[in-house]
Simulated scan of single mutants.
Amino acid sequence: MPLLDAAKGIACAVIVGHHLSRYGPMPAGAYALAPDLFAWLSDQGRLAVQVFLVIAGFLAAASLAPDGTLRVDRPVARILQRYGRLVMPYLAALTVCVLVAAVVRPWLDEEVVPASPTFGQLVAHGLLLQDLLGYESLSTGVWYVAIDFQLFALALALVGLPTLLQRSSGGAGGGGAGARLRARWAPVALVIVLAVASLALFNRNAGLDDTAFYFFGTYGLGMLVFWAGRATRFSTWQGAVSLLALVGAGALAIDWRSRIATALVTALLLAIAQRRQWLSPTHWPAAAVPLQRLGRMSYSLFLIHFPVLLAMNAAVANAGPHGAWVDAVGLVATFGLSVAAAALLYRWVEARPASWRGVFTLFAALLVSGLVVSH
């Protein structure tokens, strides 16, 4: 789906720009050259995360339950597989960040530089529990990785619960067309209920922002868009999309949140693109292939850009007296170097099959690196 890759590429570039505009002395020096751009990136750039959440929900529905019912034979194995695919590039990037932070700490007197990690902090990050256990993040944006994993596990549990209950009651072998219809729609109904609860209640409670319940409204919109796109009749699709729009509008009427508005617009645009078959590769122009490639390695870019930002801030800050243009060039160079580093991380780690041997090796590398720089 090249269009989704392109959307992820644009969203990731905005998120990287958000961090470039906020962290270190370079954005402070370059601010005067483009104050409106820096202000927008700093204040609103984080909203691009909502695009990732909607697309993640869309792809989760396509993978786990394309017809509404769970199509996974071994749910626990699937969750562990998801963990492996998420954490291999994540652990590699965290190791780089721990080492870079140790190098630049004497040269960059900024709060943005993470402190020397503790053993418990390293283990918590490796298990994606750092926010739930109250540890300071080793890198910016790593909260998203933990939330993505929670959301995937929660989505799998929701779509699998009706099948599990049916089997436990001994009803797996029959029931006729009515039972099959209920089995198909029960998971969709559960996703709708939890998505509405998230949009109306959980997402308004900042104390829940370390859990999947806070973000499931956005993720659920993506899942529901995918299922709506499976409708063969235009009237059915139109009704489903209208219902999604009403749910989103109702949530915004209760409490206006820019993040939910962004998610709703993304979901509706995705619904239209799916219906018009714009997601097909045949509708993708060759001139936009570089953007598609950026989207494919957007996860690696999201993970690795922060240590590059730390290193460049330290280098520019200690280069002697300079003007705003030097800081601006430094920010552009940071983005370019981040893309190059992401290409290496994608090729060497993310694009390779996940394995427990790889997970354990990278986990050990993170622990050893953290313990070395802490002593």
Score class of each variant (00 low, 15 high):
I147K: 01
H375K: 13
L164Y: 08
L156F: 06
R184S: 09
G178T: 13
L127Q: 06
L3G: 04
D209S: 08
A287M: 03
Y144R: 00
L99K: 07
G84H: 02
L344V: 14
F152P: 01
P89C: 04
I55S: 11
G84N: 05
V359M: 06
A30I: 05
Q44C: 11
L294A: 09
L158H: 04
T140D: 02
L221S: 01
F202R: 00
G295E: 04
A286H: 11
G170H: 03
R347D: 11
L108R: 06
F58G: 08
F202G: 01
R276L: 10
L91G: 01
V368K: 07
D5E: 09
E111M: 03
A153R: 08
W40A: 14
A13I: 07
L268P: 14
S63A: 15
H18N: 06
V159E: 09
A342H: 13
L199R: 00
A340F: 15
P307N: 01
F52N: 01
Q44S: 13
V339R: 05
A249Q: 06
R259M: 07
F234K: 12
I55P: 01
Q81W: 08
L122N: 01
G175R: 13
S369E: 08
L80S: 04
V96M: 05
V159G: 06
T236A: 15
A206F: 07
W107Q: 05
Y31P: 07
Q130S: 03
L310T: 06
A102S: 14
T232I: 05
